[in-house]
Amino acid sequence: MPLDDGSLLEVKDLSVSFDGFQVINDLSFNVGKEEIRVIIGPNGAGKTTVLDLICGRTKATGGSIRFAGKELTRLKEYDIVRAGVGRKFQTPSVYEDLNVFENLEISYPHGRSVFESLLFRRSAAVIERIHEVAEMIFLQDQLDRKASELSHGQKQWLEIGMLLIQDPALLMLDEPVAGMTVSERRRTADLLQSITKSRSVLVIEHDMGFVEQIAHKVTVLHRGQILSEGSMESVKNDPKVVEVYLGH
């Protein structure tokens, strides 16, 4: 089905079960171009599983995920990435052994096959792009530092930068501000606002203050189904949401 409503991502009747337990149940939602969508919901609602399904880490038992005209459920993980979907994991996943520059270089979307990577050269364009991204993620002075020496917040930024350098059309972030200080959170919110100019962002987050700062639209997930969807304001006042999630 063509995405004529301006959606970039269209999830339709998506289901997955693990050992007979239905984790995601007939889930449907769309994410528009240049939209920041936040998924919230209690623990075990299936939020991370939704991201896993989109990026191909988990295979759906039913339903479809269409992204920019492609059916993602049939693609390999690396083909989904190459189609333009970037995903940040919940715990910062950076290459601790390598420095910041090398972390970004590995994420640079060229030289991805074995032999291309063997012959990959650091051209001026590559170096320039790495510097550009490093500046966006506030790490321009840390390029030579090993990733293991960065603070927790800096690692989170680095991983976001590793995705940005791939210039994905859809960026998925799993709890990007978990463990960050207040000022780091503010900068991350600014960062997300600035990078969404040309892409859609799908975020899982528990920090309601942060959600309010960034979300264009919020989807509330509960037991693998959508409980409520809409603006932060309307979701906050939805009695069902207050009951299962926000009330606690």
């Binding site: 990026c55 690396y78 990435v81 996943s93 290459y95 601790e96 991805r112 590793m162 791939q166």
Partner: peptide, 12 residues
Amino acid sequence: DQENRVRFSGYN
């Protein structure tokens, strides 16, 4: 060190 990060950075 981070196999999944590499896999989800577009590498086979």
